[in-house]
């Protein structure tokens, strides 16, 4: 049986440190230069989604858990961040923190329930819990129902820097994105991350080695939910909007698609996938509902023919680690 994440992709090689460092440098350089050519708002949104996909990939790529309900953490963080900034009048960093904490708590609750079952059931439970929280969002007064929370003030960072300026906002988003990226990189390569990979490869063996795998899975789940929350909360401040779209099931599907296209279990895959899918949505926006059909077709093609994704394929061909 072919495993969900191809171990070949993460096979260590002598080029390892080199290839990852170079790729990271290229990514940072790219994100510093591109705002000169590309609409900065698009890039900021893409970075938020890239962080969201990175958080999702932490679970699927390194623990082997497919969460089909990650919109819950992204969307609810987005709501609370928007609410904190608009109604409570908090500064943006505190608003983002509020959203992030919300996501962490949701992750703790949902993770505690979901890790009680494995495999396919795990995916269905996460999806069902996310749908439950979607209905709460529909009914709750503060979320604004169909309208969402609009015209969220970006405010002043630490009360000092005016974020209405797109350049200042861009620097903040870039910093958050890179910090999230490096944090996930650190987690994956820590002893804790090695245990997660052991669980992915063979949970029974990890248990017999004495690891309390449920605890590891729960911590990984909460970490993933929290980082998805950072992404959602930041997105609410950047786009000044939190809406039902962020918390509904198609959003959960979208983050799966981004990660799948980029490469499950690769470090850079989710970033590439998020940029590709978001760019596609922008370019094809005129096609209306056909975008849904195209996304579905990409799912089918990826699963049947292109399971390693863009980055996984690249890394496999070049025999390097990305």
């Amino acid at each position: 049986m072919e495993r969900f994440v191809d171990p070949l992709v993460s096979k260590p090689s002598t080029l390892r440190v080199g290839s990852e460092t170079i790729a990271f440098a290229v990514m940072v350089l790219g994100l510093v230069i591109t705002p000169l050519f590309v609409y900065p708002l698009f890039l900021m949104q893409a970075m938020c989604f890239a962080l969201f996909a990175l958080a999702f990939n932490l679970l699927i790529g390194y623990v082997g858990l497919l969460s089909f309900g990650h919109a819950l953490y992204f969307g609810w963080a987005s709501y609370l961040s928007a609410h904190a900034a608009k109604v409570w009048g908090l500064t943006p960093e505190l608003a983002i923190l509020t959203g992030t904490l919300t996501a962490a708590l949701c992750g703790l609750g949902a993770g505690f329930l979901a890790i009680r079952r494995q495999g396919i059931y795990f995916a269905m439970i996460t999806l069902a819990l996310a749908q439950m929280m979607y209905f709460f969002a529909v009914q709750a007064k503060f979320t604004g129902g169909e309208d969402g929370i609009q015209a969220v003030p970006r405010g002043h960072l630490f009360g000092l820097i005016d974020l209405r300026n797109d350049t200042a906002m861009y620097v903040v988003v870039l910093t958050i994105f890179l910090a999230g990226f490096l944090f996930i990189y650190r987690v994956i390569h820590s002893p804790f991350g090695e245990v997660l990979k052991a669980i992915r490869e063979n949970e029974t063996r990890a248990i017999s080695l004495g690891y309390k795998t449920d605890r590891y899975k729960l911590v990984a789940f909460v970490l993933s939910a929290t980082l998805a929350g950072v992404a959602g909360a930041t997105k609410a401040v950047v786009l000044q909007l939190a809406s039902l779209t962020d918390v509904n099931w198609p959003m959960s599907g979208e983050v799966v698609l981004m990660t799948l296209v980029g490469g499950l279990g690769t470090i850079f895959g989710p970033v590439v996938g998020a940029f590709v899918i978001l760019a596609m949505q922008y370019k094809l926006a005129f096609m209306g509902e056909w975008v849904l059909v195209i996304q579905g077709a990409i799912f089918v093609v990826c699963v049947l023919l292109f399971r390693r994704g863009i980055v996984g394929e690249l890394a496999g061909r070049l025999r390097i680690r990305l």
């Binding site: 396919i120 849904l292 059909v293 990409i298 089918v300 990826c302 699963v303």
Partner: peptide, 11 residues
């Protein structure tokens, strides 16, 4: 799950 999800989106 992912493949049938994709098919569902198409339909």
């Amino acid at each position: 799950l992912l493949l049938t999800f994709g098919l569902a989106l198409i339909i």
